[in-house]
Amino acid sequence: MAEDLPTPSASPPPAANTACGTCVFNNAAQLRALGVDVSGHDHVVALAGNPNTGKSTVFNALTGLRQHVGNWPGKTVTGAEGGFGYRQRHYKLIDLPGTYSLLSDSQDEDVARDFLLFGQPDVTVVVVDATRLQRNLNLVLQILQVTGRVVVALNLVDEAHRHGLALDQRHLARELGVPVVPMTARNRQGLDTLLEAIEQVALGTVATRARRVRHGDDRTEHAVSELAARLRRDHPGLANTRWIALRLLEGDPGIERAVTDGTLDRLSGATPHAVSSETTGT
């Protein structure tokens, strides 16, 4: 379906394509950590990822804050906020709770999911543990169902290397349809490329072509499409209709609440860039 191909609507001429845009030397020098100052930001960036993947490390590296990084799953239970500047723009960074998925029913996952869905960040950086790629990709694929404006930060590549794992990040980027940035956040390696990718996705200068998974058998696929069409009719301009449709079919109480309390109505009138990904197609 056409709507499955998010084409960032905002913004000017596509510059150089980028998943491989590692070219600019030492961009990190242009990073301005702004700590807790999130005033007057141009873009909102969400930071998602499995627990214990170095999400907090990335957060700290970008914002200059010192959120404690613990080596145990579930360390970050509350979302932190910080700001950073890169080139001419200010970004507000939201550190979402570390989650394995968006589909279970725990409190931390609800926080992450609700923000991605209803907070409509301009860019979502998914921090991925390169040594446990499969498990981390589960989350990436689920997030790609919600938003296409994603940058995958492939963290801990040094550890993967030590464990004898070779990663083909170009292949990964092709498969996922979004930029993949290998990095070692602990040593600030790859930070420059990450910033570059965030900027490009935020400005829409790179076309993310997030893959969508077709669901289950044909009957499911058909039901999802039918309900999604209905949602688009009732709420013109609403993003993520397929995903919302699926959750409604599953009887997700949080999403049902969003339908009844008018959250969806509010979202369908949301800011233009936030709804870009799916409305342009249809």
Partner: peptide
């Protein structure tokens, strides 16, 4: 819809993740 469709949906995502991983990582 069939009874366990919810699980099937999830599992299709997971098997996709498994496939992508296999083609991206070599040990």
């Amino acid at each position: 819809l069939p009874e366990g469709f919810r699980d099937e949906v999830v599992e299709s995502l997971y098997s996709d993740a498994a496939r992508i991983t296999e083609t991206s990582v070599t040990e």
